[in-house]
Write a protein that binds this DNA or RNA. Structure first.
Lengths: 188, 188
DNA sequence: TTTAACAGTCCGTTTGGTCGGTTAGTGTAC
DNA sequence: GTACACTAACCGACCAAACGGACTGTTAAA
């Protein structure tokens, strides 16, 4: 049959399930959740999880990298290719981070969680490369550096605040509109 | 004597030492550090720590509240009382959060750490009140809401990024200057 | 002498990780 | 096409270490 039937054992399917579940559980309950809890939430035993990710460190790293990639995907998806003026990338960044995508919120939370407060030096080289890539993308966007930095970190601050119950949808809407306006001239 | 001599046992001194040490260790190594490690870093045994803070929850709550108070103190200290125009409070906020005070960085990190990703409902009522107080302070500052939100969250994003090695001092300086400029008219 | 700020020890629980066993998938020979 | 062999996905029981917290002892302060 052409329709991929449901098999009881599927390496890739299980791996994905564990990865997605781990990301969700991490963002919901913090970084200290146990492997047993993650495994249970993913519908596997801890032994099964250990088969796919030989250590906790390995799982954390996989979740982290996966989220980092999703960040890029999501931002690219929010770039309006028809815009032929500076700030295109920055606007995509703002739209992605301040949008209502549950998907992206998880990715950003995990990225921040492990980048800022997670296990030290868990994936240093990768983090450094990723940070540089973001810097370069913003630098190539044609906005004055200060303005770009302000907008960028405002978007990140908003994305972080989205995980709390203290940022109202109205505030988010207003802030988002302001950030998009700030990407347009005059910049002075 | 009027000079407070160094006593070998001093409730308040020890409590402060534990509190400050705990905050430092939390920001350095994440929220999962053990009480034993905190106690050792503070120069006390775990038993001694348990005498001052009967449970882990109690210690976390004390650190959290302490940091929240320090945030207010630091921001107030950075307000220029001679400014007689809108944005006074917001500028103080920016100066405090984007300054180079190691002191404040720790406070903000811990606040964010436990507010966003820490133990759920560890001090919910207090958090809610605190969040409302910040909202009201910004609302009373005379800036357009969107502009105020953008600046506020940019400052917070920058403060968060300060804990990482990926924000250069030059970037911080430029971003800080831009945020201060954004508090001034014209606001469009 | 009394109080309380500690130190030191112990225990039940939880955690990350290991290991041997079980069974579903897959290639191969007939 | 089906029987067989082999690989690997997955399970379940287990262990040593670490943890939070309770408890008892010790000693500086009042």
């Amino acid at each position: 049959m052409s329709t991929p039937e449901r098999r009881t054992r599927d390496k890739e399917r299980t791996r994905r399930a564990i990865l997605d579940t781990a990301e969700r559980v991490f963002t919901e309950r913090g970084a200290q959740v146990s492997l047993g809890d993650i495994a249970a939430a993913a519908g596997v035993t801890k032994g099964g999880l250990m088969h796919h990710f030989p250590s906790r460190e390995a799982l954390v790293q996989a979740v982290y990298r996966n989220s980092a990639h999703r960040m890029w995907d999501e931002v690219r998806a929010h770039i309006d290719l028809s815009e032929n003026r500076p700030g295109k990338f920055t606007r995509g960044y703002v739209r992605a981070l301040t949008g209502d995508s549950e998907y992206l919120v998880g990715a950003f939370s995990v990225t921040g969680l492990f980048a800022v407060l997670g296990p030290p030096a868990q994936d240093e080289e990768f983090s450094r490369r990723d940070a540089r890539a973001w810097d370069e993308a913003f630098a190539a966007d044609g906005l004055p550096e200060g303005r770009a930095l302000a907008i960028r970190y405002a978007a990140e601050g908003l994305a972080t605040a989205l995980s709390t119950p203290y940022l109202t949808p109205e505030q988010l809407t207003v802030a988002r509109a302001e950030l998009l306006t700030l990407t347009e001239p005059p910049w002075t």
